[in-house]
Simulated assay, not measured.
Amino acid sequence: MSFGPYAYFIVISYLAVALVVALLIAWIVADYRDQKRRLRELEDSGVVRRSGRSAREP
């Protein structure tokens, strides 16, 4: 399979897109872990979520 005279541009473009997607995935994973850590800190300090209460609690 030959890409012709634009092979270098095509390969570099695909590599750049793959790098951007990988960075976005890493950013999302890091943010998810940070949000979970923050939520755990809040819960440990006594803050509760409304969805975490039982139906009998006011």
Score class of each variant (00 low, 15 high):
Met1Ala: 07
Met1Trp: 02
Ser2Lys: 10
Ser2Glu: 13
Phe3Thr: 10
Phe3Leu: 15
Phe3Asp: 15
Phe3Ser: 14
Gly4Met: 00
Gly4Asn: 00
Pro5Ile: 07
Pro5Lys: 13
Pro5Phe: 06
Tyr6Ala: 12
Ala7Thr: 02
Tyr8Gly: 05
Tyr8Asp: 14
Tyr8Cys: 06
Tyr8Arg: 12
Phe9Thr: 08
Ile10Leu: 05
Val11His: 03
Val11Glu: 03
Ser13Thr: 12
Ser13Leu: 13
Tyr14Leu: 13
Tyr14Phe: 12
Ala16Ser: 03
Ala16Arg: 03
Ala16Trp: 00
Val17Thr: 10
Val17Ala: 11
Ala18Met: 01
Leu19Arg: 09
Val21Glu: 14
Val21Ala: 15
Ala22Asp: 02
Ala22Lys: 06
Leu23Arg: 12
Leu24Arg: 14
Leu24Asn: 15
Leu24Tyr: 11
Ile25Asn: 08
Ala26Thr: 06
Trp27Val: 05
Ile28Leu: 13
Ile28Lys: 15
Ile28Met: 14
Val29Ser: 06
Ala30Ile: 08
Ala30Arg: 12
Ala30Trp: 05
Asp31Leu: 10
Asp31Gln: 11
Asp31Met: 07
Tyr32Val: 04
Tyr32Lys: 09
Arg33Pro: 00
Arg33Met: 08
Asp34Cys: 08
Arg37Ser: 12
Arg37Asn: 09
Arg37Glu: 14
Arg38Glu: 15
Arg38Pro: 02
Arg38Asn: 14
Leu39Cys: 02
Leu39Lys: 09
Arg40Cys: 05
Glu41Pro: 00
Glu41Trp: 03
Glu41Leu: 09
Glu41Ala: 10
Leu42Ser: 12
Glu43Phe: 01
Asp44Ile: 04
Asp44Pro: 02
Ser45Met: 03
Val47Ala: 13
Val47Tyr: 14
Val47Leu: 14
Val47Arg: 13
Val48Tyr: 07
Val48Phe: 04
Val48Gly: 03
Arg49Glu: 08
Arg49Lys: 09
Arg49Met: 07
Arg50Pro: 00
Gly52Leu: 04
Gly52Cys: 05
Arg53Thr: 11
Ser54Thr: 10
Arg56Met: 02
Glu57Met: 07
Pro58Gln: 07
Pro58Val: 03
Pro58Lys: 08
